[in-house]
């Protein structure tokens, strides 16, 4: 063993040195908390689901104002601290209101936004069905609604009218 160590001392020293350097660089990265380790793509992935609280209808990932830059920095900071996308979105909603969410929760009046399209489709379908049913209804089916006596009178009347017309 001693002979092996003596023969390979340079190799062993090199490997130990490499391990030490790797450990040191990892420790430095962890200590710095490192917002730099969070990429722009990661920040924009969260920012694209949020809207600027100040400018109307501008997604946070494309908003050019200083305020939006600060919010993107905040997202970067939260990501570097290990927050998930959902946690960050919840934090933004709590701080700035649900209007910053790209997809607001379906609660209160906001629920109407989600329900109305389906309701409109349902009402439209019912109307279409009834119109279609009225259009394809056979003519004969309406006849039984007329009482038999009146039907006879009506038929006789029509016959008389036709006879009068033929005379002319």
């Amino acid at each position: 063993m001693a002979v092996f160590l003596r023969k390979n001392r340079f190799g062993i020293a090199w490997v130990l040195g490499l391990v030490a350097v790797l450990l040191w660089s990892g420790a430095v990265r962890a200590q710095s908390g490192s917002t730099a380790a969070v990429t722009d793509d990661q920040v924009n992935d969260v920012a694209s689901e949020l809207y600027c609280p100040v400018c109307e209808n501008t997604p946070l990932d494309v908003c050019p104002t200083q305020a939006c830059a600060q919010w993107r920095d905040l997202i970067r900071l939260k990501l570097s601290e290990g927050w998930t996308k959902e946690q960050i979105k919840d934090y933004f909603a709590e701080q700035y209101g649900i209007r910053v969410l790209g997809t607001p929760p379906a609660t209160g009046l906001t629920a109407l936004l989600y329900a109305l399209p389906y309701l409109a489709i349902l009402v439209g379908a019912v109307v279409l069905y009834r119109v279609y049913k009225a259009l394809v209804k056979p003519q004969g089916t309406a006849q039984p609604a007329v009482p038999a006596a009146e039907q006879t009178i009506s038929d006789e009347y029509i016959k008389r009218v036709e006879a009068e017309l033929r005379k002319r």
């Binding site: 009834r130 309406a142 609604a145 007329v146 009146e150 009178i153 009506s154 009347y157």
Partner: peptide
């Protein structure tokens, strides 16, 4: 004698509609 034709019953209103 002619029978009036205006006494024909109206179609029933659709309750569902």
């Amino acid at each position: 004698m002619q029978e009036p034709i205006q006494n024909l019953p109206k179609p029933p209103a659709s309750k569902g509609l």
